[in-house]
C-alpha cells in the first residue's frame, strides 16, 4: 500500500465520518439479521425515495453552515417555490424543465433576499432566517388562503422511471425523480465544495471570515452564492416532495426545519463554520433514515421513533464533544 493511501486511511480512521460509518454498519448488520426485509433492494430504494426531500435540503444547509451562517427559512422557501411552480404549471402548462426552473428560480430569489438582509443590513443570519421564515410562510398562506393543490399535471403526477432493471423474478427497479434529484444534488454539492475554487473559499470564509476578507475574498458575493444555493436546493427539494405526496400542501413543510438541521449536524458539520463534509451529511442522513426505518421493521410502534432519534442525537453529539475534549487534553499533555 502506498504511503499516501495509508496516511489517508489513518486520517479517515480518526475522523467523525469513520465513527458514523461504523455505527451505521453495526446498525445495518443487526437489522439485517433481525429482519430479512431490511437488507433488500426494495427497502433501499424506498428509503432513498422517502428521505430525498430531507437529504436535498441537508446539502443546501451544509453549504450554509460551512460558510459560517445558518438558515432555517428553507422550509418556507420550499413551500413558496412548490406552490408557485405547480400553480403556474396548472394554469399555463409546463414541462419538467420549466417547472424545475420556476421552483429553483423562486428559491434563488428568496435566498438572495436572505443574503441581502444578512449582508447589507448586517443582521446575524439566525435572526434574518427566523424573520424570513415567518414572512415567506405568512405571506404564502395569506395569499393562497392555505388551499391545497390536489390536481397536478399528469406528467408530473406520473413522475419518471429511468434505467429500469429487473432484480430477482418479480420486482423491477428504476431511478425515480426523488432518487435522481437526490443523486444529482449530492454530486453537484460535492463538486462545489471539493473541486472548485469557490468551495475552498467557502470553507475559508466559514473558518475565519475576517481573514478571508483581508485576503481579498469577495465575501458578499460568496455569501450571496451560499444563500442562493440553499434556496435553489429548497426549490428542487420542494418539487421532489410534491411529486411524492402527489399534492401541494402549503402548511405541512414548515416545522420540519430542525429534522434537516439534525441530519447535517449529526454528520459532523459545525455550527460555528468552516467544518463539514458531503460524506458526513450523507452518513448523518443515513443514520437517521436507517434508525427510523429499522424501528418500524422491528415492529416498534412509530409513536416511539422520536424517542430513539432524540437519544441518538444526544448520545452522538455528547460522544463527539467528549472525544474532541480528550484529544485536546492529550495534545496539551504531549
Amino acid at each position: 500500500m502506498p504511503d499516501s493511501l495509508k496516511a489517508a486511511l489513518a486520517r479517515f480512521r480518526r475522523s467523525h465520518e469513520f465513527w458514523l460509518l461504523a455505527v451505521i454498519l453495526l446498525l445495518c448488520a443487526g437489522l439485517g439479521v433481525a429482519n430479512a426485509q431490511f437488507l433488500t433492494m426494495q427497502n433501499l430504494f424506498d428509503l432513498l425515495t422517502s428521505y430525498a426531500f430531507v437529504g436535498i435540503l441537508a446539502l443546501g444547509l451544509l453549504v450554509v453552515l460551512i460558510a459560517g451562517g445558518i438558515d432555517i427559512s428553507f422550509t418556507a422557501t420550499a413551500s413558496v417555490a412548490q406552490y408557485v411552480a405547480l400553480a403556474f404549471a396548472n394554469a399555463y402548462g409546463a414541462n419538467w424543465f420549466t417547472v424545475f426552473a420556476i421552483a429553483m428560480g423562486t428559491g434563488l430569489a428568496l435566498g438572495a433576499i436572505n443574503a441581502q438582509f444578512i449582508q447589507k443590513l448586517r443582521i446575524p443570519s439566525i435572526i434574518v432566517s427566523v424573520a424570513t421564515l415567518n414572512i415567506f410562510y405568512g405571506l404564502l398562506i395569506f395569499v393562497t388562503g392555505g388551499k391545497y393543490i390536489y390536481s397536478l399535471p399528469d406528467w408530473f403526477a406520473t413522475g419518471i422511471f429511468w434505467f429500469e432493471f429487473d432484480w430477482g423474478k418479480t420486482s423491477s427497479y428504476g431511478v425515480n425523480l426523488q432518487i435522481l434529484v437526490l443523486g444529482v444534488s449530492f454530486l453537484i454539492t460535492w463538486l462545489l465544495l471539493n473541486r472548485t475554487n469557490i468551495g475552498r473559499q467557502v470553507y475559508a470564509m466559514g473558518g475565519n471570515p475576517d481573514a478571508a476578507q483581508r485576503l481579498g475574498f469577495h465575501t458578499f458575493r460568496l455569501n450571496m452564492l451560499v444563500y442562493c444555493y440553499m434556496g435553489v436546493m429548497a426549490g428542487a427539494a420542494s418539487l421532489v416532495q410534491a411529486q411524492l405526496a402527489q399534492s401541494v400542501a402549503p402548511t405541512v413543510l414548515v416545522g420540519k426545519e430542525l429534522d434537516v438541521v439534525a441530519a447535517v449536524v449529526l454528520g459532523g458539520a459545525s455550527l460555528s463554520g468552516g467544518v463539514g463534509t458531503v460524506l458526513g451529511t450523507f452518513l448523518g442522513l443515513t443514520l437517521l433514515a436507517v434508525l427510523q426505518n429499522g424501528l418500524i421493521l422491528l415492529g416498534v410502534s412509530s409513536y416511539w421513533s422520536q424517542l430513539f432519534v432524540g437519544l441518538v442525537i444526544l448520545i452522538s453529539v455528547s460522544v463527539t464533544a467528549w472525544s474532541q475534549r480528550e484529544r485536546r487534553a492529550r495534545r496539551v499533555r504531549a
Binding site: 438541521v261 410502534s301 424517542l307 442525537i313 444526544l314 453529539v317 455528547s318
Partner: peptide, 27 residues
C-alpha cells in the same frame, strides 16, 4: 450537564433533548 460539562453546543444538545422529550411524550 451536556452543555456545561460535556461542552456540546447548546443548539445541538437542546435539539436532542427536544426530540427526546417529545418522543417520550408521544410514546
Amino acid at each position: 450537564y451536556v452543555i456545561a460539562y460535556l461542552n456540546v453546543s447548546p443548539i445541538l444538545a437542546t435539539l436532542g433533548t427536544m426530540t427526546l422529550c417529545k418522543g417520550v411524550a408521544i410514546g
